[in-house]
Simulated assay, not measured.
Amino acid sequence: MTLKHTFMLSVLVPLLLAACDVTITDGGVNNGGATDPAEPSGDGGSAGHAGDGGSDGGVDPGNTLPAVALTRAQMDVLWDEYWAAQDDSGSSVSTGAGGAELDPNDLFLRVSDLGVSCDSPTVHLSCGGHWQLTLVVPSAYQQVGAYSLDDPMISRYGSMSETGERRSPRLDDCWWGGGSIDQGTLEILAIDASEVRFRVTFDSFADADPSGEYTAPRCP
Results as ranks from 00 to 15, higher is better:
residue 138 P to H: 07
residue 201 T to C: 00
residue 163 T to P: 00
residue 114 L to F: 00
residue 94 S to E: 10
residue 134 T to G: 04
residue 168 S to F: 00
residue 95 T to Q: 12
residue 197 R to A: 11
residue 199 R to I: 08
residue 119 D to K: 04
residue 94 S to K: 05
residue 133 L to Q: 11
residue 141 Y to Q: 05
residue 162 E to Y: 03
residue 173 D to G: 00
residue 174 C to Q: 00
residue 153 M to L: 15
residue 147 Y to T: 12
residue 165 E to C: 02
residue 122 T to E: 04
residue 152 P to Q: 08
residue 120 S to Q: 02
residue 95 T to D: 05
residue 152 P to E: 10
residue 151 D to I: 08
residue 115 G to W: 05
residue 178 G to V: 10
residue 110 R to Y: 04
residue 195 E to N: 06
residue 93 V to W: 10
residue 129 G to K: 01
residue 100 A to I: 04
residue 146 A to I: 07
residue 180 S to R: 15
residue 106 D to V: 09
residue 110 R to T: 12
residue 164 G to C: 08
residue 154 I to M: 15
residue 181 I to T: 14
residue 157 Y to C: 00
residue 133 L to W: 07
residue 120 S to E: 04
residue 149 L to I: 07
residue 176 W to L: 05
residue 164 G to T: 14
residue 92 S to G: 06
residue 191 I to M: 12
residue 109 L to F: 02
residue 176 W to V: 05
residue 97 A to N: 04
residue 101 E to T: 14
residue 104 P to W: 04
residue 172 D to T: 01
residue 131 W to I: 10
residue 178 G to W: 07
residue 131 W to C: 06
residue 171 L to S: 11
residue 176 W to H: 13
residue 97 A to W: 06
residue 196 V to Y: 02
residue 114 L to K: 14
residue 161 S to E: 11
residue 157 Y to D: 12
residue 151 D to L: 09
residue 96 G to R: 02
residue 154 I to Y: 01
residue 152 P to R: 04
residue 158 G to V: 06
residue 166 R to G: 09
residue 110 R to C: 04
residue 148 S to M: 14
residue 132 Q to L: 11
residue 167 R to E: 07
residue 108 F to L: 12
residue 188 I to Q: 01
residue 156 R to H: 04
residue 100 A to S: 10
residue 110 R to M: 14
residue 95 T to K: 07
residue 110 R to N: 02
residue 149 L to Q: 08
residue 130 H to T: 13
residue 103 D to S: 13
residue 128 G to R: 06
residue 128 G to C: 05
residue 160 M to R: 12
residue 188 I to Y: 08
residue 189 L to G: 08
residue 181 I to Q: 11
residue 114 L to C: 03
residue 133 L to M: 07
residue 91 S to K: 13
residue 90 G to I: 13
residue 128 G to S: 04
residue 135 L to Y: 01
residue 172 D to N: 09
residue 110 R to L: 10
residue 126 S to V: 12
residue 127 C to Y: 05
residue 138 P to E: 06
residue 135 L to E: 09
residue 144 V to Q: 13
residue 200 V to D: 11
